[in-house]
């Protein structure tokens, strides 16, 4: 029986525990919501080890040492697709935007067609945004989508553009919004420019990103727990 599953990301870990289980009782501060007999937690991945938990199923490389049985490990793309399929049988593209990578899978005529995994460049990922928001002390909710975008081929070059604009007097919020717009455009190109994207991951909660991506295609946010749900 599966009671608790883990999606261990680079910076944030997502956990779903069935409501009848109480393994996470000492970690209630990380509880995000409880619905349909499941409790949803998000905690910093650096805190994961100290729990000492052994999970029933897991995905994400950091979960490997935290499973009851190493056979309970699931490939991240497979977990993403399984979670997506639980939500909808639609054709289209599911895109997961993580802290340091992005993954996508495409379906056509009800069948898997294509996948890709941009595994190393921070120019398209969430950790860069989190660092920027902290550095400039910006509340993500206060960001307004920018008309303009930075052309970001590399996260480092993108940061340089932000700092360059700010040094010339630009507002930090506007500069970060342009950066986010650039990332949204990159994400759409990475997804092969579809008309519609089902979005998974932390960016679902970043309205500036969702609206910036919405300039290019219809966006359906599916939340941060899609990979976890794919394990259940």
């Amino acid at each position: 029986m599966i009671n608790i599953v883990l999606d261990a990301g680079t910076t944030w870990s997502k956990i779903i525990e069935v409501s009848s289980s109480s393994l996470m009782k000492d970690y209630s501060k990380y509880l995000i919501k409880e619905e349909n007999g499941r409790k949803y937690y998000i905690m910093p991945s650096c805190k994961l080890k100290e729990t000492g938990f052994k999970f029933d199923k897991g995905t994400g490389h950091m979960s490997l040492s935290m499973l009851k049985d190493e056979k309970a490990y699931e490939n991240e793309v497979i977990a993403l697709i399984q979670g997506f399929r639980q939500k909808t049988a639609d054709d289209g593209t599911i895109l997961d935007m993580g802290s340091r990578d992005s993954k996508r899978a495409m379906f056509k005529n009800g069948k898997f067609k294509d996948l890709d995994w941009n595994s190393s460049c921070s120019s398209s990922t969430g950790a860069t945004i989190e660092m920027l928001l902290k550095f400039y002390n910006i509340d993500v909710k206060s960001l307004v989508p920018a008309e303009e975008k930075y052309v970001i081929t590399c996260g480092i070059f993108g940061l340089e553009k932000i700092m360059d604009d700010i040094s010339k007097g630009s507002d930090a919020k506007i500069a970060v919004s342009k950066f986010i717009h650039g990332i949204a455009h990159n994400a759409w190109v990475f997804a092969k420019k579809p008309d519609k994207i089902y979005l998974s991951g932390g960016f679902c909660e970043n309205e500036c990103f969702v609206n910036s991506l919405g300039r290019y295609c219809e966006v359906v946010p599916l939340g941060r727990f899609l990979l976890c749900e794919g394990l259940l």
Binding site: E76, V77, A105, L115, W117
Partner: peptide
């Protein structure tokens, strides 16, 4: 090969 590259290949082999 990074873990992600290997996982991408594994996923492709399983899904196709």
């Amino acid at each position: 090969a990074t873990n992600s590259t290997k996982a991408k290949i594994e996923a492709f082999l399983r899904l196709r």
